[in-house]
Simulated scan of single mutants.
Amino acid sequence: MPRTTARRVLSCHAAEKSDTNLPPGGFTRGTVDSALASPGFPLLGSVLRSPVSHSPVFQTPMRFLILFLLALTAIPAFSQAPSVPTNVVATATSGTAVTVTWTASTNTGAGSVTYRVFRNGTQTGSDTSNVTFSDTGLTAGQTYSYTVSASNTSGTSSQSVAATVTTPNTPATPTGLRAVAGTNGVVLNWNSVSGVTEYVIYRNGTEIDTATTNTYVDTDTEVATTYRYSVASSNSSGDSSKSAEVSVTTKGD
């Protein structure tokens, strides 16, 4: 065989050998490797590695197969429930209110994340997109346990580690309220309550003022008019309930 012909034959064999190493479907080797890494598809991976996948007949099907596998590898990143919220802290802001805060979830997956707060194992309030929640209407001097879960369109996380808090006691309700109509208005006095920073004065059910002692004079009154008064004690933990009401009629002209 002439040397020129021999070189041509060797060149053709080398090209054929090189062609069998090319990825099918016109993709790069890295793209095919990503497709072959798709979980749960060992049989399809074997087909992609097979010499038959390099046949021109299979080029178009192989292209769609690789695209399909690449799409599947991306699905898990968009189908995970959020991670469990962390660093949950519950702080009593008064005898009847608690603020709960936490660190936002990661791995949010598909859709926006909302959070659900549980008090003593039962959801309290509505779902929220915030990382803080105010729980009100509680009882003073009680211990509460809070957990938080995160949700998106792919699912809901487990509940977080619990945070516990005890609400402080509010002061006692004043007793012995008395109201006397004087020449300059209505004079109120009541029994002192310990641990109080101030007293809240109510007239006809509406707060009108505060006092730091157990005596108060209401000068904003009309003559020959009947008024109803009550008093609540207050400190940093909150207000007590209102005292029993008393009625008084101011003097006429």
Rank of each mutant, 00 (worst) to 15 (best):
P2R: 13
L22D: 09
P23D: 02
P23I: 01
P24V: 00
G26F: 01
T31H: 07
S34W: 04
F41V: 13
L44W: 10
L44Y: 09
S46L: 12
S50G: 08
S50Q: 04
S50W: 07
V52Y: 07
S55N: 13
V57C: 00
R63A: 05
R63S: 02
F68S: 15
L72F: 10
I75Y: 09
A81C: 07
A90G: 07
T101S: 10
A110W: 10
A110S: 15
S112E: 11
Y115K: 00
Y115D: 00
V117L: 09
G121C: 06
T122W: 00
Q123N: 03
T124H: 06
T132S: 15
T136Q: 12
G137N: 01
G137P: 05
G141M: 05
G141P: 01
T143S: 15
T143C: 03
Y144T: 01
N152E: 06
N152Q: 07
T164D: 09
P168F: 09
T170N: 11
A172G: 14
V187Y: 13
N189F: 11
S192T: 13
V193C: 04
G195V: 00
Y199A: 05
V200Y: 05
I201G: 00
T206Q: 14
T206D: 09
I208E: 08
D209F: 07
D209Y: 08
N214D: 12
Y216T: 04
V217D: 09
D218V: 03
D218S: 03
T226K: 10
R228K: 14
R228H: 09
N235Y: 07
S236W: 08
E245N: 12
S247F: 10
V248K: 07
V248T: 10
T249D: 06
T250H: 09
